[in-house]
């Protein structure tokens, strides 16, 4: 992903916490900057995959193409961490990680956006994709309760 080469703090966040996917997962990272979720799709068999993989589809060995996901999903469950286990991680504890089954049928992890309080969550609620900011240059997958999301322009 694009990094500010002069900012070593940014580099540390990327090196420490982000998967080193080099260029093959670029659509995921650039999508996150635009507030979008891009996942891989096998066109011949119609299957979606996340987290992204460098390999071909295991069913038909076709190369995956990238596809913008609807960004809507069902909350399967979540976990709240009450202390920070990883020095340097930008999000303060307590922080919450969700498991969401998105409309494309894939279960994925996302961090809980600050616009939703964990007290509001219930299993099977509808969630909307909204990347969570770790720094100016680093966004990771995240979700907000449907109806709670503010547009990027407002923030």
């Amino acid at each position: 992903m694009a990094l500010n080469e002069t900012d070593t703090a940014e580099l540390d966040i990327s090196k420490q916490f982000l998967p080193q996917t080099e260029s093959w997962a670029e659509p995921l990272w650039s999508g996150l900057h635009r507030g979008e979720l891009h996942i891989q799709k096998c066109e011949p068999c119609g299957s979606f995959v996340y987290p992204p993989v460098e390999e071909t589809c295991p069913q038909c060995t076709a190369a995956y193409s990238w596809h913008r996901a609807s960004g809507t999903g069902r909350l399967w469950s979540w976990v709240t961490f009450h202390r920070s286990y990883y020095p340097g991680y930008p999000l303060a504890s307590p922080y919450t990680v969700l498991m969401v089954e998105i409309e494309e049928g894939v279960r994925m992890l996302g961090s809980l956006d600050a616009d939703t309080s964990v007290e509001e969550l219930q299993c099977d609620m509808t969630m909307k994709f909204k990347p969570v900011r770790l720094s100016d240059d680093v966004h990771i997958p995240g979700f907000v309760l449907l109806g709670k999301e503010r547009s990027r322009l407002e923030t």
């Binding site: 916490f17 982000l18 961490f81 920070s84 286990y85 990883y86 990680v97 961090s111 997958p141």
Partner: peptide, 22 residues
């Protein structure tokens, strides 16, 4: 696991916690 680390997930225990909540 690399795609869990960006969320600062703490390994199998985190998933056990999610499962038992569900």
């Amino acid at each position: 696991s690399a795609f869990e680390m960006m969320h600062a997930m703490g390994g199998p225990a985190s998933h056990s916690a999610m499962m038992v909540r569900r």
